[in-house]
Amino acid sequence: MLNAQMVMYEEELSEIQEIADQLQQDSRARTILIVDKNGQMIANAGAGSDLDTTSLSSLVAGNVAATGGIAKLIEEEEFTGQFHEGKDISVHMTLVARRIILVVLFDKGTTHGLVRLRVKKASEALSDVFDRLAVKQASTPQPDLFAEITDADIDNLFND
């Protein structure tokens, strides 16, 4: 059995982006990342080009997976929130709808309390979008993108 893949469409992505932008403003955070549980970044707000979001997403997902493993061992359903406190920058991570990780990087310009408060609201909004996305993905036939891919197309990828 293969896991269901995630498909993202223009419309939902722009909604997700809006939520991320709004959260960044409301919480006065530096950066917001929205990452799927397998470590793929879906959207971000406020990430400068100096921030390696690919690595960050993969590590965040590893971290959340490890914490999930701990939860299972001690028979806790799941830890929905995690907080790493740094001298200058802190990280708040929340599991949304069991498959998305909402990451907030923030500094002294805001407080953990404000971040948590705003994250709660954003989580609900995100949860709603991803629920709708799952329904849409299940009911929309995928464009014939993959049917059109030929063996030659795949081989061409490897011709350096």
Partner: peptide, 15 residues
């Protein structure tokens, strides 16, 4: 689980 992003036109896979 592959991640297909029609918006960013990307296919992401995990090996």
């Amino acid at each position: 689980m592959s991640f297909i992003n029609y918006s960013a036109r990307e296919i992401n896979c995990k090996l």
